[in-house]
Nucleic acid binder design. Sequence first.
RNA 1: GCGCCCGUAGUUCAGUUGGAUAGAACGACGGACUUCGGAUCCGUAGGUCGCGGGUUCGACUCCUGCCGGGCGCGCCA
Length: 555
Amino acid sequence: MADSLKESIREALVSCASEMGADPASLPDVLLERPKREDQGDWSTNVAMQLARSLKKNPRDVAAMLRDRIPDGKGIDRIEVAGPGFVNFFLTRSWMSDSVVTVLREGASYGRSDLGAGRRVQVEFVSANPTGPLHVGHGRGAAVGDIVARILEFSGHSVEREYYINDAGLQMSILGRSTQARYFELLGAAATAPFPEDGYKGAYIYDLAKDVITEKGESLLSMPLADSLPYFRQFAGDRILATIQTDLSDFGVRFDIWFSEKSLYVADDVPKTMAFLKERDYAFEQDGALWFKTTGFTDEKDRVLIRSNGVPTYFASDITYHKNKFDRGFSRVIDIWGADHHGYVPRMKAAVEALGRDPDDLSVLLIQFVNLLRDGTPVAMSTRSGEFVTLREVLDEVGVDATRYFFVMRRSDSHLDFDLELAKQQSNENPVYYIQYAHARIRSVLRETEARGVVLPDVESLLEYEFASEEEKRLIACLDEFPKEVEKASRELAPHVIASYAYSLAGAFHSFYNAHRILGEEEATMKSRLLLVRATGIVLGSALGLLGIAAPERM
RNA sequence: GCGCCCGUAGUUCAGUUGGAUAGAACGACGGACUUCGGAUCCGUAGGUCGCGGGUUCGACUCCUGCCGGGCGCGCCA
């Protein structure tokens, strides 16, 4: 409906513009929106005001001219000029059954689009060092990344999900030495292997050390520390990665590729990339180090790639890794980082440009911190001391669905208050259950329909029916919005758009359900409402699917 | 000191090509169907959109100065 309306407006616009001597090529895009108020029509456009600006005409005159040139019929009841120059469209009731029929015809693919035109997109997220369990902050990144990937798939992209394992740096050695020290400590030889100053103090290190004892007994006690260290490092790293993988999988987050940083060094990719940059004059030597030349890019100063002691920086690894990504043929790469890395973005963009790509081929999504609360008071967390709330603990306490929803209910780049008690509550304070309850209710009504032997009519027969109530109208308008909301979420990489959409759809349904009976109504009304209920179930199911949250049959 | 983000109802937050009377949830208060699920619904109160200037027909939105909060500014990762 909106599309054909847009076309009519477009034609009228061209006709007006040519009469007033404007260049038809420079006309504004026709933007249709649903006004907030009933008396402002079903659809509204501000193009008249847009056009008036460039023509230096009175917006209301342009609007009136536009109104007179849009043909009646085609579902339009009347057109009004309002306010400073809005053109408001009041539709005949038929648009509602049209919309419901569209949903029912398209089913689970309603809302899908080919916005991405099948382009290959990579989403890299979480990528936490395998030096400890995932904490709450990682959880938010995991939820956002996973849902962004789902949204991109739904809007026609070919998506790969990747986890970058930082297994090459100093951190892994510290992990190994920490585990080693705890091993000796547990076996009463703490003095032999003192705990490193910058070591990982979390209790999980003791668990790892116990596991080593189970595997190896006391056999590592007599070995020189330097000789057993590689074992500890490998063992601890592997175990922790396995834990991370289990946690993510239990959180409903799946990865296609687990990419090891180490593999970049095994294949000599880092030196090759450095040579690549040098050849193109983007890198130079100074003070015994190799530097990335920022001149000409948006970053503020030159950065070290290879230290004077010959050890590459994290930045060098990262450039190499991103070159590797683009070499794999992705047309777009999305990185999801903690917001504390925001200063790193210009540098990485500059690097991408030096690699010969458009800097916009890389999108970085910054995830703000999670402020964990219990009954309104902050839960103390400190990574350094090893006291932090893990993702696992939150999942065990509040469950997957509520955790996912809470992580994406706000914009990713704003701080998030996560109240554990609230998330657990199965009450009206909790939006997750509100949404799921709507779905369960829908399934329940449809089960009851079947039990009473009511046969749903053909979808097409709905076109003869006119929905009349405010609640039906609001619900259908909401169903109608879904494709646009998906598009917006996809364009802006914004999962919270879907989260709040699901909430309003559930709300529109609850209002409808409360105001009207379905079963037992006069036949045409009953069957039309049943089809509406079914359509709502489809869209609500899709929205929940995008969020990776269960759409329950009953609760 | 420089840079990025943020400041909207008591609280937590929506609000992007600048548009109509700034929205929602929670909390508070008052109500609802003897039937399909009350984990629901309906209503009321609650705002100088941090403050001051500017741009214009029109600013929560754009520009600018200040105030307040977060984060970042390494041959760390």
